[in-house]
Write a protein that binds this DNA or RNA. Structure first.
Length: 218
DNA sequence: AACTGTGTCAACCGCTTGGTC
DNA sequence: GGACCAAGCGGTTGACACAGT
């Protein structure tokens, strides 16, 4: 398209890569004295050989005084999961509900931690489903027993401690993978197992999350 | 000790959106 | 209405750290 970054990325005068402490200080001092403004002109005025885009990103994601560093707390994790279920990959929107966290941080967290768990859990689930379907074929005459196994594998059972050393996994993969970091007392338990997890896009539906909390009287 | 694989995260890139003229 | 521009957004990449062999 015609809407390219004004400061060409091929400009030899434009620095790329990790920011130095000196650059950080220049940017902090400049913004402290002049405030945030038009980023392209800010970069020039401050004497930084960076694009405005790069300055903005550095400021918003790292240098801003209200940026929180450190581990995502379980509460924050739960919130991220809830909001992602609601809005999908709208990272900046999600970040607005987590004070001090940046969209970039949340995006990275989701991709490296939560999505990984979902994938692993989904693989386990598909394997389990293959296993149970082959069992059905083999034990053609014992359909009642097999049906019970197959259906129970789709029931959310958050309160149940996970035992991945066995194949007796009661919760659906998406729940199981995501919830692993939570201790049982931190996460709402569930006794009604009628709600199913709909995660075609690797999201939870809000109904799933709300029902989890409502059913546990929170 | 050296090598390899994996996880994490800062930063970049390309595209879209929203505002202004 | 359309052209232009800056800001914002989400996906991706590359470097680094650490664990495992």
């Amino acid at each position: 398209m015609d809407k390219k970054e004004c400061s060409s990325s091929q400009d030899p005068d434009v620095r790329k890569g990790p920011w130095t402490m000196e650059e950080d200080l220049i940017l902090i001092n400049y913004i402290a004295n002049h405030g945030e403004g038009v980023w392209n002109s800010l970069a020039k005025s401050a004497g930084l050989k960076r694009t405005g885009k790069s300055c903005r990103l550095r400021w918003l994601n790292y240098l801003r005084p209200d940026v929180r560093r450190g581990n995502i707390t379980p509460d924050e994790q739960l919130l991220i999961i809830e909001l992602h279920a609601k809005w999908g990959n709208r990272w900046s929107k999600i970040a607005k509900h987590l004070p001090g966290r940046t969209d970039n941080e949340i995006k990275n967290y989701w991709r490296t931690r939560i999505q990984k768990h979902i994938k692993q859990a989904d693989q386990q689930n598909s394997q389990q489903q293959q296993q149970s379907s082959s069992d059905i074929q083999i034990n053609d005459n014992n359909e009642n027993n097999n049906n019970q196994v197959a259906s129970s594998s789709q029931i959310p059972n958050i309160a149940e401690p996970m035992d991945t050393s066995t194949n007796n996994i009661m919760s659906p993969p998406s729940y199981q993978g995501i919830l692993e970091p939570f201790s049982s007392h931190q996460f709402p338990t569930i006794s009604d197992q009628s709600s199913s997890c709909t995660n075609d896009n690797n999201y939870w539906s809000m109904e799933d999350l709300l029902s989890l909390q409502l059913l546990n009287g929170d």
